[in-house]
């Protein structure tokens, strides 16, 4: 008599990348890199309040980095690809994990931001692509001339188009929503949690996300109000 039906059958080993935990760790690390980038980018942008000379000099400085700039761009592209690939694969696995859904399901503890990560992420990605074409390449630049090197002029002209500004504000707000969960979630994913520190971290994540959103959207708002012109 065969006992193949009752004895446990070995499957193949689960590698780091194949495991959901491993993918989440990759997402945490790439998320952290992108968070650092977003923070640095915001600090750079805020120099707009110091006038055209300062911002254009800053833009110049970045471009004069030459190869280093391309290395940074390469790292960022790889980071986005890894974060994105892991998301897609985890989302597919998650869909498979519950083939029959509930007729009724309450959310009792999770934040809105945490439940909408799968939505806020892709919208922010679409925005990043638009944003690069808008301000870096200059391919899409509605109602104004894109002047290579004149960062200040391009920003002001770009944001004077009201729907560009609105889209920017919405996308950055979604980024903030994404970060408000992501900043604390990445610590949990790599295994750093503490009963006393984790609640503080949650609070700090919300505060940092809010600061980032305010820092970014202050620019189109200032342009639309005519404070920066």
């Amino acid at each position: 008599m065969s006992n193949a039906g009752v004895l446990p059958q070995p499957a193949s080993p689960v590698t780091f990348w194949q495991s959901t935990n491993g993918k989440k760790i990759v997402m945490a690390v790439t998320g952290c890199i992108m968070f650092l980038f977003v923070t640095g980018h915001m600090l750079g942008n805020l120099q707009i309040y110091d006038g055209p000379a300062r911002l254009n000099a800053y833009g110049h400085l970045l471009h004069s980095l030459g190869e280093i700039l391309w290395i940074i761009r390469g790292v960022m592209a790889l980071t986005i690809i890894l974060h994105f690939t892991a998301t897609i694969q985890l989302a597919l696995a998650t869909n498979r994990a519950r083939p029959v859904g509930y007729s009724r399901k309450e959310s009792i503890n999770s934040s809105y931001a945490s439940r909408t990560m799968y939505w806020s992420g892709p919208i922010v990605l679409a925005f990043v692509i638009f944003h690069l074409l808008h301000f870096t390449v200059g391919a899409i630049h509605p109602h104004a001339q894109f002047v290579e090197g004149d960062v200040y002029g391009n920003v002001v002209a770009g944001f004077q188009v009201w729907y560009v500004s609105v889209w920017y504000i919405i996308a950055v707000s979604l980024l903030g929503l994404h970060l408000s969960h992501g900043i604390s979630s990445m610590f949990q994913s790599v295994g750093l949690a503490h009963p006393r520190i984790s609640p503080l971290l949650k609070f700090a994540a919300n505060a940092i996300a809010a600061v980032i959103v305010l820092g970014y959207i202050s620019i189109p708002i200032s342009v639309l109000l005519g404070i920066v012109k």
């Binding site: 935990n21 696995a93 998650t94 519950r98 503890n109 999770s110």
Partner: peptide, 25 residues
């Protein structure tokens, strides 16, 4: 993972539903 459970998104519904209040840590 072999059992095809989904991935954790650190949102905390589990801990809130747990009758033994197992913490997210």
């Amino acid at each position: 993972n072999a059992e095809e459970f989904g991935s954790c998104t650190n949102i905390g519904e589990c801990s809130a539903a747990c009758p033994k209040e197992i913490p997210l840590e």
